[in-house]
Amino acid sequence: MSLAFLLTTLVVVATPGTGALYTVATGLAHGTRAAIVAAVGCTLGIVPHMVAAVSGLAAILHSSAVAFQTLKYLGVAYLLYLAWLTWRDDSELVAESSPATPPGPWRIVGTAVGVNVLNPKLTLFFFAFLPQFVDPAAGPAFLRMVGLSGVFMAVTLVMFAAYGVFAAGVRTHVIRRPRVVTWMRRTFAATYVALAARMAVTSR
C-alpha cells in the first residue's frame, strides 16, 4: 500500500459528499448511536463497488457509456428523493433521553447503503483509480484490490463516524431553536438537490 493511495483515500473520504451529508444529518436528528449506525451503513454501501471492481464489472462500466449513465441517473433520482423527504419532514427534534423513538437501525442502514451504492464518486474511485494502485508484480491482483478496498472502508467508517458524533454533540444546541431546525432541514434538502444537479451534469 502506497502513500499515494492513502492520500487519495483521505481526500475522497474527507470531501463532503452524499454519505457524509447523510451521516451528519442523522447525527443532528437522532443522536450519536444513529450517526454511528449511519456511518456503518455508508461503509457497507462501499461493498458493491468493491465487488464490481474486483469481479471485472469495472471494465464493463468503464467502457459502456449507457451503463455508467444509468447508474448516474439512478443516483440523481435517489438524491432528489432524499431531498423531498428532508424538505417534508416537520417532526420535532428531541434529545436522546426523550421517549421519542428514532428510525430503527435497519432503516438507517438501508438508507445509508442506498446513498453510497448510488454514489458516483465511489464508482469513479473503484472503477478508475483503484486499479492504478494495484501492481501485478506484487501478487494476485484480486487480493491486492480486496486489501486496498478494506483500507478504504476502514478510513470511511472512522471519518464518517467522527462527522456523525460531532454533529450529535452539537444537536442539543440546535433542538432548542425551531427556526434553526427548519433552516437546517431546508439546507440539507437544498444540498441534496445541488449534489443531484452536479451529478447530473458530470461527465465520465
Rank of each mutant, 00 (worst) to 15 (best):
S149I: 09
A35P: 04
Y81Q: 01
L57R: 04
Y78D: 01
A112D: 00
V109G: 00
Y163M: 07
M153Q: 06
H62Y: 08
V151F: 06
T101G: 10
V76M: 01
A141G: 09
L10E: 02
T9E: 02
A161Y: 08
N119P: 02
T111S: 12
V155T: 03
F188H: 02
L118W: 02
L3T: 15
C42Y: 00
G27N: 07
D135R: 08
V170N: 07
A137S: 15
A168T: 00
G147M: 06
V66C: 10
L71W: 03
A20N: 15
V193T: 09
A58H: 06
V165W: 10
V151K: 09
G150W: 10
G75T: 01
T111N: 12
T70H: 08
R198C: 02
Y78P: 01
L71N: 07
V181G: 03
M159R: 08
T187N: 02
L157P: 01
Q69I: 10
L143K: 09
P178V: 09
T9W: 03
L6W: 10
G104S: 07
P99S: 10
G17K: 06
V174T: 06
R204S: 13
V109Q: 04
T70Y: 01
A53Q: 14
T172L: 13
A138P: 11
H62A: 13
A65C: 09
T86A: 10
V158Q: 03
I108Y: 00
V94W: 11
T123L: 11
A200H: 04
A194P: 01
Y81T: 00
T202I: 00
E92R: 14
I60V: 15
W84A: 13
T8S: 13
F133R: 04
T8E: 00
V51A: 05
P105A: 10
A112P: 09
A29S: 03
S2T: 15
H173I: 09
L118S: 07
V54Y: 11
P16H: 11
L3G: 14
S2G: 15
S63L: 12
I46F: 02
A58S: 07
A162K: 09
T23H: 06
V180H: 12
L28S: 03
F160I: 11
M1P: 10
V117A: 02
A154Y: 04
V94K: 11
L157M: 05
V151P: 02
T172V: 14
M159L: 14
P102L: 11
W87P: 00
F166I: 12
Y163Q: 02
A34V: 13
V134G: 05
G31L: 06
V40W: 03
A34G: 11
L80I: 05
C42L: 08
A35C: 14
F152G: 07
S98G: 12
F125E: 01
L71K: 08
G169P: 06
A25G: 10
S91G: 01
S64F: 06
V151N: 08
V170A: 14
A65D: 09
A167G: 09
L10K: 04
A53M: 05
M153V: 03
A138D: 14
F152L: 14
G56H: 11
H173T: 11
S203I: 12
Q132D: 14
H49E: 08
